[in-house]
């Protein structure tokens, strides 16, 4: 739906990195390097950003 505020596993704040992550991926950066740059260290937090699909965009026309 929309990026979760915190990591499900460890509780670290991750939502604040979503916009920057999305911009860098669009520019063609490799996700691995972007996550390192954003200082997302653990793989529990990394999967939050890598596996997220922003479905709210698809929902908007129907609300």
């Amino acid at each position: 739906m929309i990026i979760p505020i915190r990591c499900f596993t460890c509780g670290t704040l991750i939502a604040d990195k979503w916009d920057e992550f999305k911009i860098q991926i669009k520019e063609g950066e490799i996700p691995e390097k972007t996550l390192d740059k954003l200082n997302v260290k653990r793989w529990c937090c990394r999967r939050m950003l890598v596996s997220h699909i922003d479905l709210i965009e698809d929902f908007l026309p129907f609300t």
């Binding site: 929309i2 920057e20 709210i56 965009e57 609300t63």
Partner: peptide
């Protein structure tokens, strides 16, 4: 809030 760029929700037209 500790960060100013945490998305809370997205609003469409006329919301």
């Amino acid at each position: 809030p500790i960060s100013s760029v945490i998305p809370i929700v997205k609003l469409g037209p006329n919301q």
